[in-house]
């Protein structure tokens, strides 16, 4: 598998990380090295193995449907970058 600069840019865009042309080139070299290590995985036949998502074989515990949280928006918004009228402000959202 060979990574391209376009792959790096595509992924950076998905991850919403600004990346310059120069950085893309650098990252490409590093990622290619890492992926050459990762490629070792492909040598193993895993067709008979169940994927393992969790470290423990457990099932989901359920929470009782009760309201336990009270309004803390003043505390929470005291550390927000930009707030007005109790709303978090962001550059205009265009639908």
């Amino acid at each position: 598998m060979t990574l391209s600069v376009d792959d790096v840019k595509r992924v950076a865009n998905l991850a919403r990380i600004e990346i310059s042309e120069e950085e893309s080139q650098q990252v490409l070299i590093q990622l290619s090295g890492i992926f050459s290590l990762i490629e070792q995985m492909q040598a193993v036949d895993t067709s008979h193995i169940e994927p393992m998502s969790h470290a423990q074989d457990m099932i989901q515990r359920l929470r009782e449907d009760v309201v336990t949280e009270s309004d803390q928006h003043i505390l929470f918004q005291s550390i927000a970058p930009q707030v007005e009228a109790s709303l978090y402000l962001v550059p205009k959202v265009i639908e």
């Binding site: 309201v67 949280e69 309004d71 109790s86």
Partner: peptide
Amino acid sequence: STRSKIFSGASTAYGAQPNTQACGIDIAL
């Protein structure tokens, strides 16, 4: 129509003042 949210204990009541029913889990601290 549950009382609390699917993954947090904040209320689901409609029409509250903005962000007063958004707990730490809902705002993804």
